[in-house]
């Protein structure tokens, strides 16, 4: 087990290392000269300033040195500086990360609380009208763009009813974006839970348990629960990944001060160091989630052993 954890961590480090190299090269995807693109925002920039930025980003070096330069800095916790106001990118990112994580966790909670029971129930009553109605609702749910749902909620709650503030920093302003994201992803969770549970209910051991006359409550609790937990962990982890992607969009609908808003501002201003840092932070979050899922599997499923 310990061996497995160590190997898993090693793979994670290699993955993040590769991502860092990829991100450092991403700046060369920019059509034309990235420094000129960035400085285009600042009409008064003198050629000296432009050269200074180029040098600060290491873009005046040969490609392999640029990569080394970037990776070396990241390893020292230096994500570079924003082109505007020259704030430390690391500071900018880590100031906003808690807001995005708070939004993501609250939305996940809402999505799970709504989606799991509905998906479970739908699978249990598979083929009945309840199942049909729920699944029509779910396919409608996955077809609604989160930003549109957000605008609709904004329209109804903040502007018509004046119950919640539109944009401020406190926990109440978290409610609408969290409901928006939570509702959107509850439909995905319901669909995934349903198909996972249908597989569980079709297992031989469930049929055997029923055939030997066990009461349904015991069949569910003793035989169906554990394998469903494995499916649920997988679903939650996958949805959490989607959710932090969706958060980037929804944050901008509600002016929630998270990483997504920071990233959009940076993209519109072509503040490349901030964008690079943003991608790396997300890569790290995603790698951490995938390690956690793998470990959860080992813990939940006795059949899985890692040597």
């Amino acid at each position: 087990m310990l061996n497995y954890v160590i190997r898993r961590l090693f793979v994670a480090v290699v993955t993040l290392f590769a991502s860092t190299i990829a991100v450092s090269l991403l700046i060369h995807v920019v059509p034309g000269d990235p420094v000129m693109m960035m400085m285009a925002q600042n009409a008064a920039a003198t050629p000296e300033q432009i050269e200074k930025v180029r040098h600060a980003l290491g873009l005046d070096l040969p490609l392999w040195q640029q990569t080394l330069h970037y990776v070396g800095n990241i390893l020292q916790g230096d994500f570079g500086r924003s082109i505007f106001g020259s704030e430390s990118v690391a500071r900018l990112l880590f100031d906003r990360l808690p807001n995005t994580l708070a939004l993501a966790f609250c939305s996940l909670l809402i999505a799970v609380v709504i989606g799991l029971p509905l998906g479970f129930f739908s699978a249990y009553r598979q083929g009945t009208w309840v199942d049909n109605v729920l699944m029509v609702g779910a396919v409608l749910g996955v077809s609604i763009p989160s930003f549109w749902l957000g605008l609709i909620l904004l329209l109804f709650f903040s502007l018509t009813l004046e119950l919640l503030p539109v944009a401020s920093g406190d926990y109440r302003s978290l409610a609408l974006p969290a409901i928006t994201l939570g509702a959107t992803y509850s439909a995905i969770i319901a669909r995934m839970t349903r198909s996972a549970m249908i597989e569980v209910f079709a297992e031989d051991y469930i049929r055997t348990a029923r055939a030997k006359g066990l009461p349904e409550s015991i069949v569910l609790r003793r035989h169906a629960l554990k394998p469903s937990l494995i499916a649920v962990v997988t679903i939650i982890a996958i949805v959490f990944g989607y959710l932090i992607g969706g958060a980037v969009v929804v944050e901008n609908v509600f002016s929630w001060n998270g990483l997504g808003r920071l990233a959009l501002d940076a993209i519109l201003r072509r503040d490349y160091p901030v964008i690079q840092g943003f991608i790396l932070v997300f890569a790290t979050v995603i790698v951490i989630i995938s390690i956690m899922i793998d470990l959860a599997y080992v813990w939940l499923d006795p059949r899985i052993t890692y040597k």
Binding site: V30, V248, L268
Partner: peptide, 21 residues
């Protein structure tokens, strides 16, 4: 597999950031 763990919209966002809107 690694790229698959990223939400699509994040990959798209990252690429547009550098390609330009």
């Amino acid at each position: 597999d690694f790229l698959y763990t990223f939400p699509d919209i994040l990959i798209a966002l990252g690429l547009v950031a550098f390609l330009g809107p």
